[in-house]
């Protein structure tokens, strides 16, 4: 009976994982360029070599990791600070909660357009107006700081997620434990270090894991705003592979890139499980 109930999910996921993986690996080992249909056959490591020697490749890996690490850091630290701020009741907390969670529901493409046109436009953008107000020269965000701009957009989207999960778990904190700490003469910092932080270890792990899953394959934001540029300054691995496949039509090379993306994801996953696995096991 249990097996019967499990099998649809397991089989579906197994197909979903194995078939694309096998095909990707297969494609990465053959010549497969839609623009050169007459070149076929086994390519050996050629596609991989082509991918690695592409200077954009190292940039893309670097950008992927920078984007991942900075967004996780910004959202977890920022989210924690906001969660602690709104943990205790104040007038209008319900509305503040609604306002805070909203960016999470905004689709990535709208998010990107919003920031590109409204916030970061060097002429009429909101940030430009603020800069001008303070007598500074407006920054051309997407041109001069492309990766940082993308990080900013994505952080805006994921900050609510981190913040609300951490806030929900703060609410479940044992009152008596905090009172005991008060009786023991702990100050706010000590309470944070020895009470709140250990209590939040598990939710923080969940936040990091979910964010890593989604941030490793950020695509729409880059596609809609910078197109990976200028140059390769904001190209991540997902975008590079997309570029290779649908713009250069070289499926073999793109597949080799995809294999690298899978390897990278797994390295990050192993790393992650090592660090936070204990917290998830409970």
């Amino acid at each position: 009976m249990p097996r019967l109930l499990l099998s649809p999910a397991v089989i579906t996921l197994l197909i979903w994982m194995v078939v694309p993986l096998a095909l990707t690996i297969y494609f990465s080992s053959i010549f497969y360029n839609l623009m050169q249909p007459d070149v076929t056959g086994f390519a050996g490591w050629m596609n991989y070599e082509f991918m690695i020697t592409n200077p954009a490749f190292t940039d893309a890996i670097w950008n992927t990791l920078v984007l991942l690490a900075s967004t996780v850091a910004i959202t977890v630290i920022g989210g924690l600070a906001i969660a602690l701020l709104i943990n205790e009741a104040f007038p209008g907390r319900g509305i503040v909660r609604l306002l805070l969670i909203s960016p999470f529901f905004v689709m990535p493409t709208v998010n990107a357009l919003l920031w590109k046109h409204m916030m970061m436009n060097p002429i009429y953008g909101v940030l430009a107006q603020i800069w001008t107000f303070f007598g500074l020269t407006p920054i051309n965000w997407l041109q001069d700081l492309p990766l940082f701009s993308v990080i900013l957009m994505i952080s805006w989207q994921w900050l609510p997620f981190a913040c609300l999960i951490l806030m929900t778990s703060l609410q479940s904190m044992d009152r008596e434990q905090l009172e005991a700490a008060d009786m023991d003469g702990a100050n706010y910092w000590q309470k944070f270090r020895y009470m709140y932080l250990p209590h939040l270890a598990r939710p923080i792990s969940v936040v990091i894991m979910i964010e890593v899953i989604f941030l490793l394959s950020v695509f729409a934001e880059i596609f809609t705003t910078t197109n990976g540029g200028p140059g390769t300054q904001s190209t991540n691995l997902a975008y590079l592979i997309f570029n290779e496949a649908l713009q250069s039509f070289d499926i073999g090379v793109a597949s080799a890139g995809a294999v690298f993306a899978i390897i990278l994801a797994n390295i990050v996953a192993i790393f992650l499980v090592r660090i936070i696995g204990k917290n998830l096991e409970k």
């Binding site: 979903w16 994982m17 499926i251 597949s255 899978i262 994801a265 996953a269």
Partner: peptide
């Protein structure tokens, strides 16, 4: 059970780009 859950979750670590080309062709 625990292993199965982790495995299911691990399929989410497979980047979408990694699956795009085969899925597209299929």
């Amino acid at each position: 059970t625990n292993g199965l859950l982790l495995w299911m979750l691990s399929t989410k670590f497979m980047p979408a780009v990694g699956a795009l080309l085969p899925i597209y062709i299929i």
